[in-house]
């Protein structure tokens, strides 16, 4: 027989990634996540998230500008974006023994970067993560 639970959480999110030879990128924001747990017959978690973020990118390599024929290095050059996001996550608890069950999740997330070259463009990432449940009674 299926056992299903639901809950809502607000999830602060800070991410960093390095896109080789393109940029270093920091993201600060939060997501409102709707969780749905299916405890039996297997322990699955499904999460749908919607969020808002501030995104700061730093160009890879060196950035220069030319002023009246003189070349100047621009340090910490990059872009600022506002980015709403959408995500969907699937997680599963593999260890049946308590305490400290470990679960793993797969979370595709799309940031809608704006303004990006005067437009809105999606930036898609996939998170693969592990969750360590510190609450021994937690079954999520």
């Amino acid at each position: 027989m299926k056992q299903i639970g639901k809950s809502n959480v607000i999830l602060p999110q800070f991410t960093y990634y390095n896109h080789i030879k393109k940029e270093n990128n920091f993201t600060l924001g939060c997501e409102v996540v709707r969780q749905r747990h299916r405890m039996k017959p297997a322990n699955w978690t499904f999460e749908t998230g919607i969020g808002v973020h501030y995104v700061r990118s730093f160009n890879a390599g060196k950035t220069f500008k030319v002023d009246n024929g003189e070349v100047k290095r621009v340090r910490f050059a990059g872009q600022n974006y506002f980015a709403p996001s959408l995500s969907y996550s699937i997680g599963r608890d593999f260890l049946k023994k308590r305490p400290n069950p470990l679960s793993v999740y797969l979370k595709p997330q799309t940031f809608f970067l704006m303004p990006y070259n005067n437009a809105i463009v999606p930036s898609v990432n996939i998170q693969i993560g592990f969750k360590l449940h510190l609450n021994n009674n937690s079954n999520a």
Binding site: K21, A60, G61, T63, F64, K65, V66
Partner: peptide
């Protein structure tokens, strides 16, 4: 290959343009 070569960005009139 990603570890070789130079990446330079040109900033000009509102755009950062990479030259690999």
């Amino acid at each position: 290959d990603l570890k070789q070569g130079d990446v330079l960005y040109l900033r000009h009139k509102g755009a950062d343009m990479p030259a690999h």
